[in-house]
């Protein structure tokens, strides 16, 4: 199969980590790294790896649109609004890794199939990617009345973007718990922990189902989902068996990164980049499958 060409917009931590992950994809061919700061570590690394480097941002890319069919936007919510507009016009597919959430919000093992034809899909948040699969797994067994997630990340892995968008984190994740997870009501909390050495990303998922929880079926469904997420985020795992108490279920999940550009404690960033690669690969397969031969 011919690889589908992709480009990364944004040369920060996420963009650079993504670059390393894409280099391993059997389906995607990273051609270009787009940034606005020629001195950034990300653009320098891209040049070292032999990728095309564009230092004039989106406008520079639009002059050479043949470089990629899928663009990963790892900039900011504000910048994404403009990027979305011009990339749509240029007929490009966009994976939105910012909290802008203009297009459908997607968690790969839950609803990616439904949105393979969308021009722009959004990744929600790291907390959303880590927890919504579990809520959905429970929802497949019993109707979820309420889903509440608490993500704790190491202070070191929370960059200025995360810190300035903390309200957006809770709001967008809550939306995902309901719209994608299937819960009737949702709530999201994010905590930063400065302990040294930095802690792994931890997520606690509190779920309330309609009636007395079906312990065995739910546990099996959660374990199956754990495996599915592990297929693209290897460091994703339950810390222990789910805890049941009547209608209440508590699940503890931790995410260890693979340590590409970011250290292994940054599971929160790793799950975002890994999920975005998964999305683009599925998209690429879909696109190729739909090309008339």
């Amino acid at each position: 199969m011919k690889k589908v060409k992709v480009a990364i917009l944004g040369s920060g931590n996420i963009g650079t980590d993504l670059m390393l992950k894409l280099s391993r994809s059997p389906i995607l061919e990273l051609t270009t790294m787009i940034g606005i700061d020629a001195e950034s570590d990300g653009l320098k690394k891209a040049a070292e790896h032999g990728y095309e480097v564009i230092t004039t941002g989106i406008d520079g890319f639009l002059e050479r649109p043949e470089l990629a069919d899928i663009i990963f936007d790892a900039t900011s919510a504000k910048a994404h609004i403009y990027h979305d507009e011009v990339l749509r016009k240029a007929g490009k597919k966009v994976i939105d890794m910012t909290p802008a959430a203009i297009g459908p919000i997607v968690v790969p093992p839950v609803n990616l199939d439904e949105h393979l034809d969308a021009d722009n899909i959004n990744l929600i948040t790291c907390g959303g990617q880590a927890t919504i699969p579990i809520i959905h797994a429970v929802h497949q067994v019993q109707s979820v009345e309420y889903g509440e997630i608490v993500s704790t990340i190491s202070s070191k892995s929370a960059g200025p973007g995360t810190r300035a968008n903390i309200d957006e984190f809770t709001q967008t994740t809550t939306r995902g718990i309901v719209e994608v997870g299937g819960a009737k009501r949702g709530k999201a909390i994010i905590l930063l922990n400065p302990a040294e050495p930095p802690i792994l990303m931890r997520n606690t998922i509190h779920i309330q189902v309609e009636e007395e929880a079906k312990t065995e079926e739910i546990t099996a469904s959660i374990r199956e989902m754990e495996k599915e997420v592990q297929s693209y985020v290897p460091g994703y795992r339950l810390r222990q068996e789910p805890i049941f108490d009547g209608k209440d279920i508590t699940v503890f999940v931790e995410v260890e990164g693979v340590g590409d550009y970011l250290p292994t404690y940054s599971g929160n960033l790793d799950i975002m980049t890994a999920s975005s690669v998964k999305m683009a690969e599925e998209w690429a397969k879909h696109k190729v499958a739909n090309i008339p031969v």
Partner: peptide, 18 residues
Amino acid sequence: KREVVGGQEDMIMDVAAE
């Protein structure tokens, strides 16, 4: 010992189970 911070009430159940 684990230097948990305010708000990490979920660690209580986690640690207790462990």
